[in-house]
Structures are given as C-alpha cells and as structure tokens.
Design a protein around this nucleic acid. Sequence first.
DNA 1: ATGTTACCTAGCCATATGGCTAAGTATGAC
DNA 2: GTCATACTTAGCCATATGGCTAGGTAACAT
Lengths: 119, 119
Amino acid sequence: MAKYDEQLDRYFTALGDPTRRAILSRLARGPASTSELAAPHDMALPSFLAHLRKLEAAGLVTSDKQGRVRSYSLTPDALRPAQDWLSEQRALWETRLDQFDDYVTNLTQERTDGPRSQD
Amino acid sequence: MAKYDEQLDRYFTALGDPTRRAILSRLARGPASTSELAAPHDMALPSFLAHLRKLEAAGLVTSDKQGRVRSYSLTPDALRPAQDWLSEQRALWETRLDQFDDYVTNLTQERTDGPRSQD
DNA sequence: ATGTTACCTAGCCATATGGCTAAGTATGAC
DNA sequence: GTCATACTTAGCCATATGGCTAGGTAACAT
C-alpha cells in the first residue's frame, strides 16, 4: 500500500518547522493577512512568504486575495490525515508490542534459537 | 509558550520522508536488524543508516547492538507527542472556527469596523 | 590466524531549503 | 496622475539533506 504519499511528505515536513507551527497557532486564533502573520517573525517578507506557501502546498492553510491583501485561514480538517496516520501506526505497533512480549516470553521458555524473520 | 521545541522539529521532519515512514511501518510488525530493515530499500547502506539515525534522534525508534548486529524497535509511546500537539491544535482551531463564525455573524449584525488583532 | 559478515566512519557530490536584497505589480488613497 | 501600501518575483548565497564510494572495525566462523 501507499504508492509514495507525497502529500503526507509535505504535510509532516511543513509541521517540522517552528515558524510554520507558530503560524498555525496564530491562525488558530483567527484568520489574518500576510503582514499580520509576518509581524512577529523577525524575518524578511519574501522569506516568510515561502513558509506560507509551504503550508498552503501542504493543505494546512488556504488563502484568499482581496484587493491587495491576502488573507490566510486554517484549512478546517487539515490535521486529520496526520492524526489518522499517527493513530493507525500507533494502534498497529501497540498490538505488536504485545505480540512481541509474547514472543520473547515464549523464546525465553523454549530456548528455540531461531531467527526472528517473521515477515 | 513553547520556547522552540526542537524535538518536535525532529519529530515531524523525521515523519516527512517516505523511507522513514516505511521503516516505521516495517517496525510496527516487529523489531528488526539494520540489514533486515535495509533490504527492501534500493539504497546503499550508509545512506540508509542516516535515516535510522534520524528516526532515533527523533525518539521514534531505539536500537540495541548485540555482537555485530544492531536491532531496532519502535519506541513505545513515540507518537504521543505528535498526536498530542495535533489534537491540541485541532481543538483550538475548531473552537476558533466556531468563535469566528460568531464573530462574523456579530460583525454583520453590528457593523463594528474593528481590527481583529487580538494576540 | 584468516576470512566473512555486519555495521560504521569519512569524505565527496548534487540538490533542496531557508535566508537575504532589489526590483516589480497591482490596488487604494489623494 | 502620483504615491504609498501590500504583496510578489527574481536572483543570490550559505547551509542542510540525502545520496554515493571507499575504507575502516569488531564479532563470529573455520
């Protein structure tokens, strides 16, 4: 499964930067224009715009330009995919940690010197 | 809050790569050695090792070397922080989307021409 | 002791990322 | 029309990232 999910790449990569997470937190308090968003960040505007573009490419925010002002807001269900992926993984491997626990117990008791390739 | 959470940076950045997510999925099926993990990836070993190191630096996996074999396994609660951050953000902004809805309604009714800088 | 296996280190290279300045475009104000 | 505002584009630069080969080092096998 998963034929190389580039969207998920952009997603997590976008979240892996403090400036971008700060933007998201700020937007959580309501929509804002480019310059409003940029103000607290000590960074030239073009550099800042690059972050906004990445967030938008990742589907985390959307923007709408009216006149000369571009307004950004959070994409409503944007974090769902990440949460889904994470909880899926977590479920998978918590199950597995249990099974592994079994396996080790088993091994200790039986002393079967086999490899663990159980793929 | 959040005085620049570098761990969260490493975390999300580590997840933002298909090879590394594949490693995690593989490990969800049980611990494995370096070469077992590397096998399905068409990549030179040193390049692959770099991914493993990033996952470990992010706290997503742990490793243990016995003899000449290093075995990797998932860090049990590793995905919690990411999940927590995500659901916190989501809660925040879903609340806010409601509040914003209120705000807009209010604005439409009262016609108060105030700025929205409420940070 | 010699060889093989399994991993590690060092160093190189190409591209991506994240920052900058300078200059351009388009809208709103006068 | 002229000017200020609010982005946007273009192009430069330094560092980080992700890949490679070549050559270790340490453990197991013979």
